[in-house]
């Protein structure tokens, strides 16, 4: 009888450790850098919305284009009006999966290498992207850190300085504490 009870307890603990959790944040950070010449073209967005599911690895990110803050107001205005056309395309989003989520042990703190694949939509254009990053677990709370490059013209973004003062590939760095 004792064995049966113990077995039941272990099974219950096993199920519990794999219980589905949805992690979310409204204040993730995205860093944008498209410096192509001497002048720094960089911005940060502190209101990135993201959720992911611990069991399936399904992950989404959403960011408002007007949420990218530049040191230079004029640069911010040009970014919104002349390049990103943020009135017409107010948000960017990513929908995909952490493909190796099974390698993350959510009951053990540490750094886990993750692989992410999905569809990135910017400026109304969707492209498949895949990248690698790190999921840091501290006190059971995840923090996803990653970096990837965006070929600007692949997203239908046009402008006379792209490939010159503006890099043809923008670097996006991500830091989301859930």
């Amino acid at each position: 009888m004792k064995r049966v009870v113990l077995s039941f307890c272990f099974i219950a603990i096993g199920f519990n450790s794999q219980a589905q959790q949805v992690f979310a944040t409204k204040t993730g950070q995205l860093f944008f850098n498209a410096t192509g010449g001497d002048v720094k073209i960089a911005a940060v967005n502190n209101q990135t919305d993201s959720k992911f599911v611990s069991t399936t690895g399904q992950i989404i990110f959403g960011a408002l284009i007007k949420g990218f803050k530049f040191e230079n107001q004029l640069m911010e205005d040009h970014f919104n009006e002349n390049y990103m056309e943020s009135t017409q395309f107010p948000k960017a989003d990513f929908k995909g999966y952490i493909t190796n989520i099974k390698e993350v042990n959510f009951t053990k703190d540490g750094d886990y290498a993750i692989k992410v694949e999905g569809n990135l939509t910017i400026h109304g254009v969707t492209n498949k992207v895949s990248t690698e990053g790190v999921m840091q677990l501290k006190g059971g709370k995840p923090n996803i850190i990653g970096s990837f490059k965006i070929p600007i013209k692949q997203y239908g973004i046009k402008g006379s300085y792209i490939g010159e003062k503006i890099a043809s590939e923008a670097t996006i760095k991500l830091n989301c504490k859930y």
Binding site: K26, Q47, D49, G62, A63, L64, K66, G67, P90, K91
Partner: peptide, 8 residues
């Protein structure tokens, strides 16, 4: 700034 899961 627009709308995500909330109005931002």
């Amino acid at each position: 700034n627009g709308f995500l899961s909330d109005i931002v």
